[in-house]
Design a protein around this nucleic acid. Structure first.
Length: 591
RNA sequence: GCGCCCGUAGCUCAGCUGGAUAGAGUACCUGGCUACGAACCAGGGGGUCAGGAGUUCGAAUCUCUUCGGGCGCGCCA
């Protein structure tokens, strides 16, 4: 249903209701599409909503509303062809065929804009993926990338101004661990024997970076120091531990990092920067090939360099929301609904990741966004309260921040769950997945389920039966339409003034109705932050087209009928293409 | 233990601010190409919406509770 059509009908129902029950003006008029086709094109439950307040039989109320509706002067304009009362008191409306045809004309008059909402004043930032630059992106990041990019597209199509951003965690301890790991592999590449720390990054990509580092700097980064071997032994022997013993394992690694920084002096920045740039380039390349792009790549380190982190901490301190305990500086986040207070400056004087995240979010809102959406992995849900608390403490309305949690993607191979761990290097990368199932299939597959639903990614199925992926079903519909126009030697854009009256078959009407739902669907998907609705819609649209295609021949002798059907095909094509574009999936003309 | 998310067909999942007979894909069964692309279509079987209670004209949807699963609960990020 085109939004303006629906709005017009809603207004008429409202007017009719005001005649019957003027005191019920507050009860909203809701129109929905019935599941059963015999229930008409639109259904309204207002009579049942009013039954209790009016102390009357809902069917009687419905009869009065319908009578008032039919008495309206606009009734004669033919927008609605019938109004019936059914069931417990539903008012079922049938649209005139001319109303249904109007949607085709609307699509063909402005194909590129079809589905897009009117521009709103809303300025939204969407931040997604923001993976640590300490390893290649894995399939969990892929889900965040597909979801975030599609969501940003949907929000923009709904009318908002959208800015896409990636936050680079280039300042923390994890990055130091990567730099250390690269340096150790570099030493190995230069023929030294090193005991590798238990918690270092062990992936093969670390060796690749180290080899490149060796080629670029040769012996420049080698160091000799008796303390180094001892520290290395200590870190290597501190086994990977969990929970309460984690701190002890951390200490050995931190000592090793500190020593490496001391020995390398200014060359530490060389190693660190080299590793960072290598990983960043890898991630950027990976995402770009996946069709996931950004307006900004925002560096965490830049917040430290500019003094914003220090200022954010000072702001919290001066507002009286901090205290010192055990030598650390704590933010009293419990005041703002968090379950416990949080450290923002450690006993050793270093600021926590949370401290820079406060500065980052303050920076976001200082840039004038009305709304900020963070796409996070579901394991970060416990982090939301403290960030919102910090915003509140700094006088920012935390309602303007929405965190969209994306559940994990669990990987299955041979019917068994694949263990994933960055440190061990045992994980399937996004790059591997893309190569094996293709970018289109991966993008579509990722958004084919609700974001808060766990995703069981069956690798064998995705690889061996990729032809069964629903993306091909939708793309095939698009290719089929294109093929018709090649056959007809016609241009889809030449049909915008074609008379549509010959279109009256059930399949044709169903397809038109589906096409007409597209604009409202985009609004819903934007409101619910649910790009999966687009994917499901496209499958249904493709199904309606395939059904129509199999039932009716398009290129027939009757020129008027043929032209009208071509116009319907053209509208289908543009809707498919625009929908696929929202998901970052290509719309091939041939397959 | 506390908090968040989830539980719908054999499997993977939809179900919009509560609506009429709970849907799709897949798998299984039966049909359809001398017709614009069969990567398609038409039809069939398959359900205690995890269990229970409540709210109301009406509950898969909202509330409470039990059971089951995932994640989080560090001066890591």
């Amino acid at each position: 249903m085109m939004p303006d059509t629906k709005a017009a009908i809603t207004a008429r129902l409202h007017a009719a209701r005001m005649q019957v029950a003027p005191e019920s003006a507050q009860t909203p008029i809701l129109l929905e599409r019935p599941k059963q086709a015999e229930h008409g094109d639109l259904s309204c439950n207002i009579a049942m909503q009013l039954a209790k307040a009016l102390k009357a039989n809902p069917r009687q109320i419905a009869e009065q509303i319908v009578a008032a509706l039919q008495a309206q002067t606009q009734w004669a304009d033919g927008l609605i062809s019938a109004a019936e009362i059914a069931g417990a008191g539903f008012i079922n409306l049938r649209l005139s065929i001319r109303t249904k045809h109007a949607v085709i004309t609307q699509v063909l008059n402005a194909p590129a804009d079809w589905g897009r909402g009117a521009r709103t004043q809303e300025n939204i930032q969407v931040e997604y993926v923001s993976a640590n630059p300490t390893g290649p992106l894995h399939i969990g990041h892929g889900r965040g990338a597909a979801y975030g990019a599609s969501l940003a597209n949907v929000l923009a199509a709904a009318g908002a101004t959208v800015t896409r951003e990636f936050y680079i965690n280039d300042a923390g301890r994890q990055m130091d661990i990567l730099a250390l790991s690269v340096w150790l592999r570099y030493l190995e590449a230069r023929g030294r024997t090193v005991a590798f720390p238990a918690d270092g990054y062990r992936g093969a990509y670390v060796r690749d970076i180290a080899v490149a580092l060796n080629q670029a700097h040769a012996a420049q980064l080698e160091r000799d120091d008796p303390r180094f071997a001892a520290a290395l032994q200590a870190a290597a022997q501190s086994e990977q531990v969990a929970d309460d013993e984690a701190v002890r394992g951390d200490a050995a690694l931190d000592a090793l990092i500190a020593l490496a920084r001391e020995l390398l002096a200014t060359d530490w920045r060389v190693v660190h920067g080299f590793a960072l740039q290598a990983m960043l380039a890898d991630q950027q390349d990976d995402l770009a090939q996946f069709g996931v792009t950004y307006a900004h790549w925002f560096s965490e380190q830049s917040l430290h360099d500019s003094g914003q982190v220090a200022r954010a901490v000072a702001q919290l301190e001066s507002a009286g929301h901090t205290y010192i305990k055990d030598g650390a500086l704590w933010f009293r986040s419990t005041t703002f609904g968090d379950e416990k207070d949080r450290v923002i400056r450690r006993e050793n004087g270093l600021l926590t990741y949370f401290a820079s995240d406060i500065a980052y979010h303050l920076d976001k809102f200082s840039r004038g966004f009305d709304r900020v959406i963070n796409v996070w992995g579901a394991d970060h849900h416990g982090y939301i309260a403290r960030v919102k608390g910090a915003l509140l403490a700094c006088g920012v309305d935390a309602q303007r921040l929405t965190v969209a949690l994306v559940q994990f993607a669990a990987l299955f191979r041979g019917g068994e769950k694949v263990a994933m761990g960055k440190r061990s290097g045992e994980f399937v990368t996004l790059r591997d997945l893309r190569r094996e199932v293709g970018d289109d299939a991966a993008r579509f597959f990722y958004v084919l389920r609700k974001s808060d639903q766990h995703l069981d990614f069956d690798l064998d199925l995705a690889k061996s039966q990729s032809n069964d992926n629903p993306v091909y079903y939708v793309q095939y519909a698009h290719a089929r339409v294109c093929s018709i126009f090649v056959q007809a030697k016609r241009d889809a854009q030449s049909l915008h003034s074609t008379p549509l009256s010959p279109l009256e078959g059930a399949r044709e009407l169903a397809l038109m109705q589906r096409i007409g739902e597209f604009p409202e669907l985009i609004q819903t998907a934007a409101r619910e932050l649910a790009p999966h609705l687009i994917a499901f819609y496209l499958r249904e649209l493709a199904a309606d087209f395939h059904a129509f295609y199999n039932a009716e021949r398009i290129l027939v002798e009757d020129a008027a009928l043929s032209e009208a059907r071509l116009a319907l095909c053209a509208a289908t094509r543009y809707t498919l293409a625009n929908g696929l574009a929202l998901l970052g999936v290509s719309a091939p003309e041939r397959m």
